[in-house]
Amino acid sequence: MAIPEGYAVAPTTTDHMVKIAVPVPGRENPILIEAPKLAWIPPHEVDAYQDWMKPFIEAEAEVIQWHTDNDDLEESKRSEFPKSAEDLVAGLTIRETKVRWLKPYLTAVDYKLLATSKKIPEKTIDWVVDQLKASSDDVTPGEYSASADS
């Protein structure tokens, strides 16, 4: 694409990519992640994440509403508890909500390992998320990291 002279070029997702290697004890190769920072996730992936989260959010709201409506009632006057909603929420891990953004950028095996492996400490997952959340304000188009790093 040719940009006419004098025009500023708006940054894109590819201008804000991070590359992260996550070592996995007992595995020869690390999990290699190349993904945009969260502020630069393409809209269709944000929509996909929201679609994935929606059943969990609705189930949690259903359980909360049940408690609001029933906790002060006698046992015999309570409505049926939404056990399936509670089970759905119970099956969701905080780790998976953190790493789900990376699913489009990983193989199925690497994603499952990142989301479920007991060999990868929670602090490692938190560090990866911190890298994805890091501000992109100091990165200009065409750079992977700020010039100050070089």
Score class of each variant (00 low, 15 high):
residue 1 M to R: 14
residue 1 M to L: 10
residue 2 A to P: 07
residue 6 G to T: 01
residue 10 A to I: 10
residue 11 P to S: 08
residue 12 T to K: 11
residue 13 T to D: 06
residue 13 T to W: 07
residue 14 T to M: 11
residue 14 T to I: 09
residue 14 T to V: 12
residue 17 M to I: 04
residue 17 M to D: 03
residue 20 I to F: 00
residue 21 A to P: 07
residue 23 P to W: 10
residue 23 P to H: 11
residue 25 P to F: 07
residue 26 G to P: 02
residue 26 G to D: 03
residue 26 G to K: 01
residue 27 R to T: 11
residue 27 R to L: 09
residue 30 P to Y: 03
residue 31 I to V: 03
residue 31 I to Y: 03
residue 34 E to A: 02
residue 34 E to P: 05
residue 35 A to W: 05
residue 35 A to D: 01
residue 35 A to F: 02
residue 35 A to P: 10
residue 36 P to M: 00
residue 38 L to T: 10
residue 40 W to P: 04
residue 41 I to S: 03
residue 43 P to Q: 05
residue 44 H to N: 10
residue 44 H to R: 11
residue 44 H to A: 06
residue 44 H to E: 11
residue 46 V to M: 08
residue 47 D to F: 12
residue 49 Y to I: 10
residue 50 Q to N: 13
residue 50 Q to H: 14
residue 51 D to H: 09
residue 53 M to V: 11
residue 54 K to L: 05
residue 54 K to P: 00
residue 55 P to T: 01
residue 56 F to C: 00
residue 56 F to N: 02
residue 57 I to Y: 13
residue 57 I to W: 15
residue 57 I to P: 04
residue 58 E to N: 13
residue 59 A to C: 08
residue 59 A to K: 06
residue 59 A to I: 05
residue 61 A to W: 09
residue 61 A to G: 05
residue 61 A to F: 10
residue 62 E to G: 06
residue 62 E to K: 15
residue 63 V to W: 06
residue 63 V to D: 01
residue 64 I to F: 05
residue 64 I to E: 11
residue 64 I to D: 08
residue 65 Q to T: 10
residue 66 W to A: 07
residue 68 T to I: 15
residue 68 T to G: 07
residue 68 T to W: 14
residue 68 T to H: 13
residue 70 N to F: 02
residue 73 L to D: 03
residue 73 L to T: 01
residue 73 L to S: 06
residue 74 E to V: 06
residue 78 R to W: 01
residue 78 R to C: 00
residue 79 S to V: 06
residue 80 E to L: 08
residue 81 F to N: 04
residue 81 F to C: 04
residue 83 K to Y: 12
residue 84 S to C: 04
residue 86 E to M: 15
residue 87 D to I: 10
residue 87 D to C: 09
residue 87 D to N: 11
residue 90 A to Y: 08
residue 90 A to W: 10
residue 91 G to L: 06
residue 91 G to A: 03
residue 91 G to H: 02
residue 91 G to M: 06
residue 95 R to Y: 01
residue 97 T to L: 00
residue 98 K to P: 01
residue 99 V to G: 00
residue 99 V to Y: 04
residue 101 W to Y: 15
residue 103 K to P: 07
residue 105 Y to L: 00
residue 107 T to C: 06
residue 108 A to E: 15
residue 109 V to W: 05
residue 109 V to S: 07
residue 110 D to S: 05
residue 111 Y to E: 02
residue 112 K to V: 06
residue 112 K to M: 07
residue 112 K to L: 12
residue 113 L to Y: 02
residue 113 L to V: 12
residue 113 L to R: 11
residue 114 L to K: 02
residue 116 T to E: 14
residue 119 K to W: 07
residue 120 I to D: 00
residue 123 K to F: 13
residue 124 T to I: 13
residue 126 D to G: 04
residue 127 W to V: 09
residue 127 W to I: 08
residue 129 V to H: 01
residue 129 V to M: 06
residue 130 D to A: 13
residue 130 D to V: 03
residue 130 D to R: 15
residue 131 Q to V: 05
residue 132 L to Q: 00
residue 132 L to K: 00
residue 133 K to D: 10
residue 133 K to P: 09
residue 134 A to Q: 05
residue 134 A to K: 14
residue 136 S to R: 00
residue 137 D to M: 11
residue 138 D to L: 11
residue 139 V to I: 13
residue 139 V to F: 06
residue 140 T to G: 10
residue 140 T to I: 15
residue 140 T to W: 15
residue 141 P to T: 02
residue 143 E to M: 14
residue 143 E to T: 12
residue 144 Y to T: 13
residue 146 A to D: 08
residue 147 S to D: 12
residue 147 S to P: 14
residue 147 S to Y: 15
residue 149 D to W: 14
residue 150 S to H: 13
